[in-house]
Design a protein around this nucleic acid. Structure first.
Length: 468
RNA sequence: GGCUGAGUGGCAGAGUGGUUAUGCAGCAGCCUGCAAAGCUGUGGACGUCGGUUCGAUUCCGGCCUCAGCCUCCA
């Protein structure tokens, strides 16, 4: 039985979908004005694992992840760059999708954009005005009236009174209450704008997710996810908007992933301490980055460091070394390892524990490979299957082991030996060994090692190689 | 200040009221011409002070430290 930690109750709860056999899931995607950083990668990978696992349990999953392509930062950045908003957002939407693809993230079923959703956003604002949950201020902006939504704060565990006490006063705002938030912003001269009953303007940030999620998934759906920083106010506001506009409960399970940190500080665009996905992928394989993310529980903080990425790479080498020479047989036979894996994943997607099972299975494969090849093949198939549920171990082991970890780093590719050159060196060493010229043989091996090539003499007499 | 969450062995990171997490690194053995890989064994831990208990790293309370949210942010 799958249990999910629900931010609404702050407890693990048994998961029951609204419609048997179906899961409808919405995740807040990114605002496209810059490249994805590791924090974005984490959201994408975490929910990719959630989706893969839900599917493996037999659920028919509808996964929606939006793209925010209009907001103040986008407007500023486009102005800074001297490019149009659509050029900027198109560029970074494509970059984001490329990054996701390289990380092995299965694309969402629906990827709505705010600017394609203006009409449904306006329709939702109309309903909120009609039911008295929103008002037009003196400056023509439309605001949500938080005081009209009794359960405001239920997701973030905040009391309206506490929020008011700590609210920062912004004299420029025309709100009735500092907690009210904008649904429709009147355009200033030169700003992008859409016509509306309330004048030309653009949607506020929160309303787009309410409009897009309920349009794609219905007024009431199963899971809504995103980074922990969105819990308040973004998700709190989404609940307020959606439930006021539809009169129905909005979401049953809220999932929030923890942050990526650098030196124990949150990685974020505003702090400027972020590493972009493409930057990291110059030095590490996408699979290593994915392993690094999955090796921590999704709600825990994740500290970014080269050392942790190196560990991830070493772990993958161990897996692929075990899989090497044990090709897929086509038939999947599962064992107790799969049972244990499921028990871990059923416990709020406990991927570190699931990985521990994979490591145990790996040891079993290594034990079996020389004694019982049939069993080894079977276990290898099981490992590939379980790895697939986490989105890795699907590559050809030889390719993984012989592909340079930094193959994407242009500066290092030119110095890399070709496979043919390595084979030649191995043949020369073999000849030296046959002639008992171990000094000569070792010289060749040391030379290869110096260039990042590790030789392994197999029991049968064959020599295999891999890159460090 | 309010509200969350966290403090585990050299590092990363799960978990549990009494019995092996797991990976990397270390040590020893097997294997090897020597290595590498692999296997076997092994050392090393639960912020702090109290309480509950036959027994707590695990439950409860105080304290200390850290992070996050309360403002754009995944």
């Amino acid at each position: 039985m799958l249990h999910i930690h629900n931010s609404l109750s702050n407890c693990k709860e048994p998961f029951h979908p609204i419609s048997a056999g179906e899961v409808r899931l919405y995740v807040c995607g990114m605002t496209v004005y810059d490249f994805c950083h590791i924090g974005h990668a984490r959201v994408m990978v975490v929910f990719d694992v959630v989706v893969r696992y839900l599917k493996s349990l037999g659920f028919n999953v509808t996964y929606v992840r939006n793209i925010t392509d209009i907001d103040d930062k986008i407007i500023h950045r486009a102005a800074e760059n001297g490019e149009s908003i659509s050029t900027l957002t198109e560029r970074f939407s494509i970059a984001m999708q490329e990054d996701a693809l390289r990380l092995g993230v299965i694309p969402p079923d629906i990827e709505p954009r705010a600017t394609d959703s203006i009409l449904i956003i306006q329709a939702m604002i109309e309903r909120l005005l009609a039911t008295g949950h929103a008002y037009q201020a003196a400056n023509k902006d439309i605001y949500y009236d938080v005081s009209r939504f009794a359960s405001y704060g239920k997701l973030s565990g905040k009391q309206i009174a506490d929020l008011r006490a700590g609210a920062r006063v912004d004299v420029m705002e025309a709100k009735d209450d500092p907690l009210d938030f904008v649904l429709w912003k009147t355009a200033k001269p030169g700003e992008p704008a859409w016509e509306s009953p309330w004048g030309a303007g653009r949607p506020g940030w929160h309303i787009e997710c309410s409009a897009m999620s309920t349009t794609a998934l219905g007024n009431h759906f199963d899971i809504h996810g995103g980074g922990a920083d969105l819990q308040f106010p973004h998700h709190e506001n989404e609940i307020a908007q959606s439930e006021a506009a539809t009169g129905e409960p909005f979401v049953n399970y809220w999932m929030h992933n923890g942050f990526v940190r650098v030196d124990d500080e949150k990685m974020s665009k505003s702090l400027g301490n972020f590493f972009t996905v493409r930057e990291v992928l110059k030095h590490y394989s996408p699979e290593a980055l994915r392993f690094f993310i999955v090796a921590s529980h999704y709600r825990s903080p994740l500290n970014y460091s080269n050392q942790n990425l190196d560990t991830a790479r070493a772990a993958l080498t161990r897996f692929y070394t075990a899989l090497h020479g044990l090709p897929a047989t086509g038939e999947l036979i599962t064992s107790d390892y799969t049972t244990r894996f499921h028990a871990a994943m059923n416990d709020d997607f406990n991927t570190p524990e699931a990985l521990a099972v994979c490591f145990d299975l790996t040891r079993e494969i290594n034990r079996a490979r020389n004694e019982d090849k049939t069993q080894a093949l079977q276990l290898a198939g099981e490992l590939r299957y379980l790895g697939g549920l986490l989105g890795f171990l699907q590559a050809d082991p030889e390719q993984f082991l012989q592909g340079s970890a930094s193959a994407l780093d242009e500066s290092s590719t030119e110095a890399t030996l070709t496979a043919t050159a390595i084979q030649t060196a191995i043949a020369n060493r073999e000849a030296a060994r046959k002639a008992k010229d171990f000094k000569g043989a070792d010289r060749i091996r040391d030379e290869l090692k110096r260039q990042g090539i590790i030789l392994e003499d197999r029991p049968g007499g064959a020599t295999t190689w891999r890159r460090e």
